[in-house]
């Protein structure tokens, strides 16, 4: 830090501090967040190793919990079990120092995720005693209300928190998920759109919005969201796959051709191992064939992609699920691919 001789030091420093805080707060979201972040292989291996070790009574519970928190994994049951075992042991707990409170928070959220509301309440009570006016603890309380299903109260708690800090990302997201949990999908869409107007680089929100749009059958909007996701992570095959699904569902020659291309890219990015993408290629080819039938066959595409996909599928089925092979061949035959 000391090397910067310009004026941005202060701003940057406060920004990093704020950012770090936000990062810490984002952990609260674990319960609704699938691990969209890529976890590197070595870290994954380490988590599994530590998990085994801890599960079998070895030490290292605290390291395991730290790692889970850092990688934003959702292992609520394990976190609850091992976190509680640390918290219930006064000597272990006090050896954590100030990290103790982080652990309380982590365990509280894990407990909420496991519907152990009482445990969560105990944790929050401790936190409240220590930090009487904390917004973070207030958030936890609101999450508990939400977990209990008292939507109106939770909503009230969130809006009072928002008054103090109208730009809190976590609260905005929680409000959207709350609408979703109540089945009010269009309300969730509205909130998410409002949120994305400011935080428009938030991938998780885009993804959530895309999924909601799909379930509302608003495919054009969903396609837009998936495009946004592809832009932010152009090498993630899952986004290509989901985008292709949406395009295929939209139908129409142009969309189908595009869908086939995206299925192909998903195939390429997964090394040809994604069954859904392979089926997608077959279906798209069939649908395109149906549409162009009768028209001039000049631009009939000469690629062997579909037959290759079909062969790959057959091979996979032979290897993994031989009993289902007959139904596969039937399906492929009906698609004129076998």
């Amino acid at each position: 830090m000391g090397d910067y001789c310009n004026s941005n030091v202060a701003r940057r420093k406060s920004w990093t501090a704020r950012h770090r805080e936000r990062e810490r707060e984002n952990e609260e979201e674990e319960e609704e967040r699938r691990t969209t972040k890529m976890v590197s292989k070595t870290e994954e291996a380490r988590v599994t190793m530590l998990e085994n070790q801890v599960d079998n009574g070895g030490g290292g519970a605290w390291e395991y919990l730290c790692l889970v928190r850092k990688l934003k994994l959702r292992r609520s049951d394990k976190v609850l079990k091992h976190g509680l075992s640390i918290l219930n042991d006064p000597s272990k707990r006090s050896s954590l120092g100030p990290e103790e409170w982080t652990l309380y928070e982590q365990v509280a959220i894990a407990a909420i995720d496991c519907q152990c509301i009482d445990v969560a309440k105990d944790c929050i009570k401790v936190l409240q005693k220590r930090f009487p006016d904390s917004k973070r603890v207030g958030k936890l309380e609101a999450i508990i209300l939400e977990a209990k299903g008292s939507w109106a109260e939770a909503e009230k708690a969130y809006s009072s928190l928002l008054e103090d800090n109208p730009l809190d990302q976590v609260i905005h997201k929680r409000r959207a998920t709350m609408e979703k949990a109540q089945g009010n999908l269009s309300g969730a869409v509205e909130l998410l759109n409002k949120y994305l107007e400011i935080y428009m680089a938030d991938q998780d929100a885009w993804r959530e919005l895309a999924e909601i749009y799909v379930s509302l059958q608003m495919y054009k909007q969903a396609a837009f969201c998936y495009e946004e996701l592809i832009l932010s992570q152009p090498r993630n095959p899952l986004y290509h796959l989901a985008y292709a699904d949406v395009l295929y569902t939209l139908g129409g020659l142009e969309n189908l051709q595009a869908a086939k291309k995206y299925y192909a890219s998903a195939t390429d990015l997964t090394g040809g191992k994604n069954t859904r993408a392979l089926f997608g290629i077959c279906l798209c080819t069939h649908a395109i064939g149906q549409l162009v039938k009768g028209r001039n066959k000049e631009d009939k595409d000469s690629s062997e992609l579909q037959s290759l996909a079909a062969t790959a599928l057959e091979k996979d089925y032979k290897l993994i699920a031989p009993t289902k092979l007959s139904s596969l061949t039937k399906t492929l035959r009906s698609l004129n691919l076998s």
């Binding site: 890219s265 390429d268 090394g271 290629i281 690629s303 790959a312």
Partner: peptide
């Protein structure tokens, strides 16, 4: 994306 079709073909052939 059009390039990806060819690449996917190659990948599948290899597989």
């Amino acid at each position: 994306l059009p390039k990806f079709e060819q690449r996917a073909e190659e990948v599948l052939r290899k597989r």
